[in-house]
């Protein structure tokens, strides 16, 4: 090959073709489907909590995309039904994730709805599950001598509780928990919503 411009133009044309297939076409197909019926938009507090989730990088260990039972026992673990494209209508940025160093969180709001549990778990995961390798997020909490009105106190076992005083959730922690509590996907998915059904064909259910 001896010519620069044909080389560059052809290379860019191939990229344009790939963009058409991988970006534009699915964008049109997914865009044509609205939100899953019954899916609630995030509240202002949940959006703030979602920003915390993004900024702390939760997505690097937690996916939000259960697979179908034909592929994996995700629903058996209580992670929720198989996700479809319309479940993510209000998501920006998307938080599908690619790692399960921790469990999937698509349905965490239905699986572990307790605010108190979530706060304890964020403050120190090993206070609940000794085997957990999740980071603790002590900076989302504040140590006070005495709880004031309106404070949400974190329930802690003796070995993780402070010697005196109480651990109180900062607004960031409460927002994050509100977001997690809102992650419920028990709505039946619309039939038109795309998902990869490549495993479902002829599989034993």
């Amino acid at each position: 090959m001896n010519r620069v411009f044909p080389l560059a133009i052809l290379a860019l044309a191939i990229l344009a073709f790939a963009t058409l297939v991988l970006v534009v076409a699915p964008g049109l197909q997914v865009g044509a489907v609205g939100p899953t019926p019954g899916l609630q938009p995030y509240t202002a507090q949940q959006l703030r909590g979602r920003d915390q989730y993004v900024s702390l990088g939760c997505v690097y260990c937690h996916s939000q995309q259960p697979r179908s039972l034909a592929q994996a026992p995700d629903s058996d673990r209580g992670w929720g039904r198989a996700a479809v494209a319309s479940d993510y209508y209000y998501d920006r940025p998307h938080l599908l994730g690619t790692m399960r160093s921790g469990p999937d969180l698509f349905n965490i709001g239905a699986r572990l709805p307790s605010q108190g549990w979530q706060l304890t778990h964020l403050y120190q995961p090993r206070a609940i599950a000794p085997w957990s390798i999740m980071p603790a997020y002590p900076f989302l909490f504040v140590h006070k001598d005495k709880a004031e009105t309106g404070d949400v106190v974190v329930a802690l076992t003796q070995n993780y509780a402070p010697k005196s005083g109480v651990i109180v959730a900062r607004p960031e922690a409460l927002d994050l928990v509100a977001y997690l509590q809102g992650l419920k996907h028990d709505q039946p998915p619309p039939a038109s919503a795309p998902r990869d059904a490549g495993y479902d064909r002829g599989a034993e259910r």
């Binding site: 209580g78 929720g80 349905n107 699986r111 572990l112 709805p113 307790s114 605010q115 108190g116």
Partner: peptide, 23 residues
Amino acid sequence: GGKGAAWACSSCHGLAGEGADAV
């Protein structure tokens, strides 16, 4: 309202003990 390290039962099992998705 829970007690000590125990969270309120109702925070997962519901106000009337009705349970939830996987609870």
